[in-house]
Nucleic acid binder design. Sequence first.
DNA 1: TTTTTTAAGTTGAAAAAGTAAGTTAATCTC
DNA 2: GAGATTAACTTACTTTTTCAACTTAAAAAA
Lengths: 402, 402
Amino acid sequence: MNFQSVNVSLIREQNLSLVLQYLLQNSPQTSRTDLMRLTHLSGTTVSALVNILLNSGFVSETGVGESIGGRRPITLELNPTFAYSMGVDIGASHITCMIIDLKGNVVASLSEPFDVIHKAHATMKRAKELLTRMLEIAHLDLSRVAGLGVSIPAPLDGEKQDRLLAFYMPDWEGMVVLDELRPFFDLPMFLENDANAGGIAEKWWGVGRQHHSLAFIKLGVGVGAGLIINDEIYRGFAGSAGEIGHTTIESKGRLCRCGNRGCMESYVGIPGILKDVQSRRGISESSLMTIEDVIAAAKNGEPVNTEVLQTAGRYLGIAIANLLNLVNPEIVILNGYIMDAGDMLMQEVVSSMLERTLPLRAEFTPIVASRLGRDAVAMGAATLVIHQSIQPEYINRFLHLT
Amino acid sequence: MNFQSVNVSLIREQNLSLVLQYLLQNSPQTSRTDLMRLTHLSGTTVSALVNILLNSGFVSETGVGESIGGRRPITLELNPTFAYSMGVDIGASHITCMIIDLKGNVVASLSEPFDVIHKAHATMKRAKELLTRMLEIAHLDLSRVAGLGVSIPAPLDGEKQDRLLAFYMPDWEGMVVLDELRPFFDLPMFLENDANAGGIAEKWWGVGRQHHSLAFIKLGVGVGAGLIINDEIYRGFAGSAGEIGHTTIESKGRLCRCGNRGCMESYVGIPGILKDVQSRRGISESSLMTIEDVIAAAKNGEPVNTEVLQTAGRYLGIAIANLLNLVNPEIVILNGYIMDAGDMLMQEVVSSMLERTLPLRAEFTPIVASRLGRDAVAMGAATLVIHQSIQPEYINRFLHLT
DNA sequence: TTTTTTAAGTTGAAAAAGTAAGTTAATCTC
DNA sequence: GAGATTAACTTACTTTTTCAACTTAAAAAA
């Protein structure tokens, strides 16, 4: 059921949005006739829509294509610098800013470590400074930027989903994140959870391009999934969909930072892995071991490290099997430092997943590594703006038609 | 992203569908002006659409409503007998047929035990006989029936989702279920998984009426969930979404009939519960104990039975917590024989769920018992027809306008 | 060169929604 | 009880947008 009434002018917006989507995807060498075929719209309609896009500067006629027996088609190409989009990835311990164009090219980026968890206001102040500096470096005026996306390392919270769930980050309690940036940037702004942002990035520019539904699993200190269903972020009713880190896979298992037992995150999250290595090798917990150290040593043949990583892989596989049984996405994309472990980890993930989905068709779901790596989340934050801008409701504003 | 182009006549169909939905929901005492307010359509448009519905016989003007200071409104009421819909619930060990009208009134129903699992063709033959007999009893001609929905106790399978996944029911391997009925009923037919059908029924006629997303968990020999998201059945990419029974909650737990360990179903499904009672009370496994016996004894104060049911409840609560963390529906609806246990079970389910969703907003999700009980699935199968018929694509045919 | 094929653009009709003004009906006010 | 007010609904006309058929244009094939 769709509780939305439709009026005449919405038709144009919907179809304009549709043409735009095809141009953004198949960009080079698209002719009007190609668009007719792709959209199943009439020639009249396509010509009218293309004229609008030509006038607004969104596309240009760049030449003629190959003939297939008749008049050669005029090729249309989208102008990737028609608009830029800005994103900030607020991580647990870093801030990463990025500007991308309409083809997903990274125009500029800036990143630095920051104690995000314990300093809410300082984080946002620093983010503002980094964004401003990045705009200067890129020689871009704010008027060329379509909007700003911000990702945060926690589920969204509040009636308006305008703050973060501060359970693990008490200093962020009650802060309306975007309000900290609004005085400095007169732009449409979007707030999103980091895993959801990563999911959108892989859908637009990464391994998810060909798929309409996917799960993007971000493995870090915490573990969360971004679910893309029907090409849109799926947030669930209260915004907590995709919280795979706190799904139970061992009902009386180890204690998790959330206070419960047997959460997947307590086995697969970075602190869990470090603790396992430390306890199994008799190293003191206070030693400054990093996940990179653990993986490097494993690759150099340290058997205990390898075993710990493989165990984590098996637990991750169970959680993914549960995800496939419940949500059944087209593809699962894994992202995070731990992915540097490569096949050692992946083989365990896949075999453990296969065991637990055998009678179901979910077993054919590919599990792959992220293509965008550490850029994924910041890129996704920026992509939120583009994603929104080409929706029928916003398209006239985006093309400066209003 | 919506890859659907829009043409002019689709507007009418969309808006007609919208008006129909409101009439089906708010049925008694709806005036044209009410519809204007509800749909945000203009008076002209609403009047035109209402005239179409009056001419087709779908609604009637039944009288006048209360004045609020001016002319009294003409009340429109949908004619519930404009069309009927037929459903068959093929269970694991029963066949239930049902005819409902457009208000969800049960016009006729027939049910009998049947060894469905081991006899595929015989089941469908018997279903055909029951449906024919039910039509006779109800004195209904096939021309008054809008379609036939069929539910099966397994996930759908095949490219066209036209058969069932025969892992637990080998006799059904390869059978295209609806093809067995097509020669006898010249009707639009729909095949659906039982839990999905139950979900649709609760959404339309039960406790899910006010909600746009819900999870309907069917607890029987197997345990499966039907997910309704944005008022539509969510099937996932390969049709295996909602397979909550085979999600792992104990990575090295008991063996499940699917061959894996620690599936929720092995603790909460009827065979698991019976085996627990038998082993804890030293009764032989071959004794003919039913789940009804177990519940009745528990209610009469048998502590072992109560404990077993409570343990099942705790496991169910964990699986529900996982579902809330991953899918985050608005409400969870429980259905099945085991629900007769009442509060004894529900309290454990809820407290175990709460423990595991505490830091997340999912904790506020209500968990309630099904309102439709054993009728839910057959009713849902029938409702599939209505659900489809009022979609914009089919609405003209439904109103006999083509 | 002529014919065929493909691409792009144009014209007129049709569908549907909206606006504005008008009609009908019931209730309130003086 | 006559006129004013409010509500519900209808009618005539305008706007938007699409589609179908046709025209123009360019290239390839015969």
